[in-house]
Design a protein around this nucleic acid. Structure first.
Lengths: 111, 111
DNA sequence: AAGACATATCGTATATCGGCGATACACATT
DNA sequence: AATGTGTATCGCCGATATACGATATGTCTT
């Protein structure tokens, strides 16, 4: 337990009636944050933001993980919509879905 | 697989050399996002932001979860620093750690 | 000291994650 | 058709998350 007083922030001041935050919204945000809740996925997103795009193989090279593992993480990022994959001949080119990223940033910033 | 072309966003344009994003930073962000990666925890945070503070029991009442489960989620939020608990007599009063929240928002916004 | 109350922790069951190698699949080239 | 290359999926495993009831801990009151 935290037994020390909160130093710079007051606690236990009031208790207004609160409106139940809608569950759907919470699940929405949780889904997005969950996608970013793994260092590998954070790095992948970061990678894709630094470059304009990235072929899957390049991502694998940058990560200390097996190709199949990276592919799994990419799948998760795709499912949450944060990343898009475009088939480019024999390879797949990934890029950030800016709309989804914007949504994540908005939801977090409006917390 | 995603087989459709990304409509409004160009993909596979260039491939600049990228600097490996530091792992520590990724782990930092992943830890914070992981704390928010569950609807129940998102709702708890939301709850604490709406009110200035909240006694544990009130949180339990608002959630469709057992008291022990809520306590577990609170523990996770405390461990990541997003929330602070202050013992107030027989009860515990929780509030948001604004510094940690600011850090989360900053890390996300600077993505 | 004893009881009532609030919260944390323990123990357990189940589900999901995260990792890998092996394999399947898709596309391009020969 | 056959081969090669790049990527996705499968099957498996250990580790961890999630949920709960039961119990322990701690704090007020009587």
């Amino acid at each position: 337990m935290v037994r020390t007083k909160a130093e710079s922030q007051k606690c236990c001041t009031t208790g207004e009636k609160m409106s139940l935050p809608d569950v759907a919204w919470a699940e929405d945000l949780a889904k997005l944050t969950w996608a970013m809740a793994h260092p590998a996925r954070v790095r992948i997103v970061r990678l894709l933001l630094n470059r304009t795009s990235c072929v899957c193989g390049e991502i694998v090279e940058e990560m200390p993980l097996a190709q199949s593992t990276v592919s799994q993480h990419l799948k998760i990022l795709k499912e949450t919509g944060l990343v898009q994959g475009e088939v480019d001949g024999p390879r797949v080119c990934y890029c950030i879905n800016k709309d989804a990223m914007a949504k994540l940033k908005k939801l977090i910033s409006k917390l």
